[in-house]
Design a protein around this nucleic acid. Structure first.
Ligand SMILES: NC(=O)c1ccc[n+]([C@@H]2O[C@H](COP(=O)([O-])OP(=O)(O)OC[C@H]3O[C@@H](n4cnc5c(N)ncnc54)[C@H](O)[C@@H]3O)[C@@H](O)[C@H]2O)c1
Ligand SMILES: NC(=O)c1ccc[n+]([C@@H]2O[C@H](COP(=O)([O-])OP(=O)(O)OC[C@H]3O[C@@H](n4cnc5c(N)ncnc54)[C@H](O)[C@@H]3O)[C@@H](O)[C@H]2O)c1
Lengths: 264, 264
DNA sequence: AGCCACTTGTGAACGAATGCACAAAGTGGC
DNA sequence: GCCACTTTGTGCATTCGTTCACAAGTGGCT
């Protein structure tokens, strides 16, 4: 199918500029370009900025005008040094001795995250999860209007869900282009996910959120974020097991091998 | 406890271990952390092991008995060196020149992830999302039986959802103890999440998955994993914006090399 | 003005995760 | 038994991310 990339043994051999996110040279040209925005923000920081934004929105609603990094950090569940460093990636908008103005931070984070314009979302697979997503009010209100729904089931096509009629997946490319969909959300059964993904890509969608528990193969210019609940549960399971292990200290050597294999 | 109100170097409220020596010492605090004996598996590797496990299960169903790190890595969407390193954290179960036996890896990963026993799950907030979760067959089949459902709505209490009757949130502590719930899933509106979380903790639940867009405050021994769709969308938005930016940059240095695509 | 208490922004130390490259260990052919 | 070939497991360099700790600003108070 798509993406023949990656099979070949040495496709990654080329040492040439893999991902030089930030090629900061030891001596940055002192003559800084005025509009030198977007200087590599660490991936992890971007995720946190989104969290700060939400916390700040809540603060704004409560009428809070100014706060310190310490306060915001506590509310966001991170330590204050990290918070300040994160904010420093987007500029210097604080006042020493005082703190930050909520509205300024909100504006700046929105700018950096590209939230000054809205991004239309398409949901594919209107089953249990798809219904929940289509009905969820939290996306439109945050600049992510759900502008298209798709399913393969003829009984669903044409039926309005959350006020929007479901289209057939064969129309994905056409509808996505028409409605300028920029983000596709896949909520189909795993077996259908790759095919759906391919269609979305064919329709010009370059950002995808995938709920189906499969690894999608996509061209390089497409970005996929997976939301995998089973993995989350298993990570928790791991920590539970780890915790239990460290309890019974002595016989820790790979305890039992009781072959109680679950399911499968 | 957190004590240390205040100034001196950041005090953190996060898990803590390294006691920051209060006095500023010219020399770094003597590195004393011998207790960290267990060769810990990197957090990031744990998440990937869960993915490998799923891919391997699929392989097993297809009757594949043996495979190489290269093959598994391709199927899991990672590079093979990383895959081998990840596997090396759990032991040496491969055969040089040959590869890995699928069934062995499945067993070992399940052992490490603590999947040799099942973990009962409780879902709180049986709305759109909660219904989807309660009806989802993917959890029970992977060793995470949904053993309790809770909601505050009197019209819902007693109604079976996915074959299991909904209980009232006031019974969280009691029911969780009775049914030995080990993982709680929060799918309530944001405003109710913290209160629900507190009850789960009171009921002895030490692992929580939170779908509500709020930062939960929990005691140290409780682990929370948040699933935040809005954040995912905003991260995608950020990359879209960034991509657009690098487009309209006049053909300066950035040009080709900047394959800044972080998420791959 | 001068002092002081407070808070930001950031260089630098530290630590975690990734990717490379190759010795070691195995298989199969002869 | 030896050689050619394959693939694992891991030491090492590198890159990415977090935390520390402090100079540099800011505003209030006397
Ligand atoms: N329900 C959950 O709580 C949950 C949790 C985690 C992951 N998931 C994953 O999310 C996905 C959806 O779960 P669900 O519970 O909503 O499943 P579901 O069976 O309720 O819904 C799937 C929907 O996809 C549609 N569909 C099937 N093939 C399709 C195709 N080729 N193109 C478009 N649509 C197609 C079906 O008609 C159906 O409406 C699954 O991959 C599941 O593993 C679900
Ligand atoms: N629906 C989605 O697709 C989606 C996506 C992302 C995040 N979320 C988040 O997930 C959560 C649930 O979303 P939803 O769409 O299912 O909402 P919903 O309104 O459909 O359901 C919420 C349910 O929680 C119950 N509830 C309210 N207060 C409660 C309390 N104190 N204790 C227990 N139950 C209580 C309500 O009775 C209702 O049944 C929300 O926080 C939402 O922001 C939902």
């Amino acid at each position: 199918m798509a993406a023949a990339r990656g099979q070949r043994g040495g496709d990654r051999d080329v040492p040439a500029a893999p991902n030089a996110a930030e090629v900061t040279m030891p001596i940055p040209p002192v003559s800084d370009t005025p509009m030198q925005r977007a200087r590599a923000i660490p991936e992890a920081a971007v995720a946190r900025l989104a969290v700060y934004l939400r916390v700040l929105s809540g603060m704004a609603e409560q009428g809070i005008v100014t706060l310190s990094s310490e306060e915001l950090a506590a509310a966001a569940g991170v330590n204050s040094a990290k918070l300040r460093k994160d904010l420093s990636y987007i500029g210097s908008y604080g006042t020493r001795g005082v703190g930050y103005e909520v509205s300024v931070l909100v504006d700046q984070i929105e700018r950096i995250l590209g939230l000054t314009r809205s991004h239309s979302v398409a949901v594919v697979g209107i089953g249990n999860l798809g219904h929940a997503l289509a009905n969820y009010g939290g996306f439109p209100s945050r600049g992510f209007p759900v502008a298209a729904l798709f399913d393969v089931d003829p009984d669903l096509v044409g039926v309005p869900v959350g006020g929007l009629p479901v289209s057939h997946i064969d129309d994905i490319p056409k509808v996505c282009a028409e409605r300028e969909i920029s983000i596709g959300v896949i909520a189909t059964p795993p077996a259908a996910a790759q095919a759906v993904c391919d269609r979305l890509v064919a329709g010009g969608v370059a950002s995808i959120v995938n709920f189906a528990p499969v690894v999608l193969q996509v061209p390089d210019h497409v970005e996929v974020r997976k939301v995998d609940l089973a993995v989350e549960l298993q990570i928790l399971s791991f920590h539970v097991a780890r915790r239990a292990d460290s309890m019974n200290v002595n016989g820790s050597a790979l305890g039992n091998v009781d072959g109680v294999v679950i399911g499968r």
